[in-house]
Structures are given as structure tokens and as C-alpha cells.
Design a protein around this nucleic acid. Sequence first.
DNA 1: AACGTAAGGATCGTTGAACAATTCGACAAG
DNA 2: CTTGTCGAATTGTTCAACGATCCTTACGTT
Lengths: 226, 226
Amino acid sequence: MDDFVADLSQDRPRLGRSSTAERVADILRERISEGFFRPGQRLSEEAISEALTVSRNTLREAFRLLGHERLLDHQLNRGVFVRLPSAEDVLDLYRVRRVLEGAAVRRPPTPDALAVIREAVREAEQAAAGDDWQRVGTANIRFHQALVSLNGSPRIDELMRQLLAELRLVFHVMDNPRAFHEPFVERNRVLLGLVESGRADEAAAYLDAYLDHAEKLLVHAYEPNR
Amino acid sequence: MDDFVADLSQDRPRLGRSSTAERVADILRERISEGFFRPGQRLSEEAISEALTVSRNTLREAFRLLGHERLLDHQLNRGVFVRLPSAEDVLDLYRVRRVLEGAAVRRPPTPDALAVIREAVREAEQAAAGDDWQRVGTANIRFHQALVSLNGSPRIDELMRQLLAELRLVFHVMDNPRAFHEPFVERNRVLLGLVESGRADEAAAYLDAYLDHAEKLLVHAYEPNR
DNA sequence: AACGTAAGGATCGTTGAACAATTCGACAAG
DNA sequence: CTTGTCGAATTGTTCAACGATCCTTACGTT
């Protein structure tokens, strides 16, 4: 009789979903992620609040949100800066990735998670064929996000989202997208194959080598100086 | 020559460490954690800002902080409430624990992490002998926090901190500390032994059973109603 | 040249007040 | 019992102000 009411209640979370502060945070998050704001850059409360026509108080609420996501660095009485990850941060990000992705590939893959992974692999290959390394990077990120979703945990998904956003900061610091993303297009395909065929241990081993290599490339090329 | 300078630089984070909003958040976090504010309870901006003698704007910044830690639930135009975790939340919390703690016990333990773990086991046993189940719970939490620290990742430590704070909310909902904590005092001792002796696979298996049992106990007794 | 100090300007931290927007409960009407 | 409507209470957002802190520059000392 009223089972459609139950269905409707799933849309509940989308309702509370709009406050000026959060929308401001969305805008800033996107700008940071796309590299419009560079790591290390200071974000002036006055300038941005005027540009977006929101009060300083509201903007500060948005800053807090992004600070908690580690995209901004809030220094008392000095202002907020786009986070500039240290080499030590890179190491830790990969520690977390190993744990999260390692657990993921050992889990029996669900059909629709697999579909998303396949699509990400396809897109990366297609973008690579067109020399669009920006897009390869995005597809690569989607690939790992989908991989982690095999864990079936919303909290882990959320954590991975933040982690990858932070990694994007690293990429922006050393921006040489091709050198870093190119080697992994093919590996994604291989890893997908291992996961698809249920060879969990091999997948885990392959992933470990994958991450070791990626980490080594990064920390070697990474210089947060300037 | 100046190696002590490097040592000193570790204290850097403690410097920037004070803003009214953060201190307010600290106070509220503690109150929530100790159960002074009950899950589901609404926190009035006016009442609390007056009680702490801070402006509403500052208090709101504190609310945002805790909201991001999932301790508060911020509903647009309705106010902030102490989070009341759902049964589904409990399941997800244990999904994450399995991943984090499972990875931890498979790692070679460092001496000082082991020391902290041992101390937590000892304290739990002592508190249990004295029928102080509140303290048993705290020691138990310390145990698992120390366990996860074997991963050697600051980010994972932070994540675990939040996760356990959230779990405390669950405990507060169904408060019957003894029934839930008692069975695990002994298991902690066993798990410690397995980790100490480097039997990683056995430790992992034992931990899985441990978590399965704990989860089952929780979801069974858990009723987020009223 | 290196260092300590002082002054000034810029920006942040926090407050208090104000008003619009929204929720919620009560009560009347159908 | 359901559906409108009204008013009180609370939140969302803005604004202006002032003290606190940091950064820069300049100046004088050693």
C-alpha cells in the first residue's frame, strides 16, 4: 500500500543538504582539486568572502570543513593555506592505501562494483590513447576508488575519497602527469583481471608491487620546496 | 650538531594549538564521550554559548568540527544533535575495524607499541577484578587503539580514534557495560600473546572471531529507539 | 654583517546585534 | 482524522567593531 513511502525515505539525506557554508566548501574543494588554488597558497578571508558574497563567518565555517579534510591548513592568526603535503605525508598516504586496497582485493567482488572498475580501466586506456593525461589521472583515481568500494563500507569509501583528494595535491605540486600515470594504465587492466577471476592472493601481491612502485616514483620525484 | 633542532621540530604541531572554537570542541567532545550529553539529545546554540560564555558564531565553529567527527548530527535549521548511531552504523564500524585491526596484527610489532598494548591488557584485568566496568571499557578501547597503531600510520591512528569515539556513543545508548566488556578482557590477553610471538595468521583468525562475536553481541542488544 | 628592538599596517579571532528563513506545536476549519 | 493557518522559538547569515597576533620595515646596537 504505502511501500513507496519507504522508498522515498531513502532520499531523506538529500534534503538537509544545503547550507551556504557547505556550498562554499564545495566550490573551494573543486577549485583546489582542479589546481586553481595551488598548494601552499594562502586563501584570504576578506578577498574570498567578497568574491563569493558571503560573510566572513560563513566562509570560516567552510574553511573548517576543508581543514578537517586536510585540504586546507589552518594556522592560528595567520590564515588558511592550501595544504602542501610533505614527503612524510606521501609515505603515510601509501600506508593507508596499502591497508585499504589490500583488504579490498581480498574480498569477493560484487557485480556492480566490478562494472565501475571496468569502466574506469576502459576510460583510462582511451584517454591514454588520446594523450589526455589529465583525464588518465582522473580515471586512475576512479579506478582505485572503485577498488576500495569492494570493502562495502561507506566510511572507508569516504576515507578513500579524502585520501585521493589529498593525493591530488601531491600531483599538483610536481605536476608532470604523464610520467606518473602512464605506467599504471596497463597495470590497472591486469589487476582487474586478477580480481575478476577471484585470484585474491595474486591480486594482493600484484597490488603491493603496484603501490610500492608508485610510491617510489612519487617520493623520488617529489619536492615540496620552492 | 643541531640534531636536537630536528627533535624539537616534532613539537611544532603543539604550537598553533589554541583557538576558542577548538577548546570549546574539546570540552564538548569530552562531555559527549563521558555520556553527559546523551545520544539523540539536542544541543541548543543559545544555551551552550551562554553557559560557556562564547559567542554563537564561535560555538558554531566548534559544532562543525564535531560534526565532521561524526559525534554531532547537524540538521539544517533544526540544530545539532548528539549522534545516535543506527544499527547499520554499527555494522559499518565493525567493517572498518576488521580492515584496520586485521592489517595491524599482520605487521611485525614494534617494542613500544607492544608496551602500550601490554599496559592496556593489564589495566583491563585489574579494573575487571575491581568490578569497575567503566574503566574496563576505557582500557579495552586503549587496547584496540594501541593495536591499530602497529600499522605505523598517523592517519590510521586518527581514524581509529574517531571510530572508537563513535563506538562509545553506541555503548551509551545501550548502557550495560559489564555484559559487553567482560568477555573480552581475557581475549585481549590471548590476542596479545599471539601478536607477541609473531604468529600473525593465528592472531588474524583469532581477531576475526573476536570481532564477529563482539559485533553480534552489539547488534543483538542494540536498540536505537527512544 | 648579525642581532635586538620598535613602529605600523594587515589580517585574523571573537563578539554582539540584527534580520530573514525555517521549524514546530497548537488550534481552528473542513 | 486530515488539512490549513498562525505565532513562538531557533537557526542561518550578515555586518560592524575591536583587540590580538603576525609580518614588514626601519633603526640602532654590538
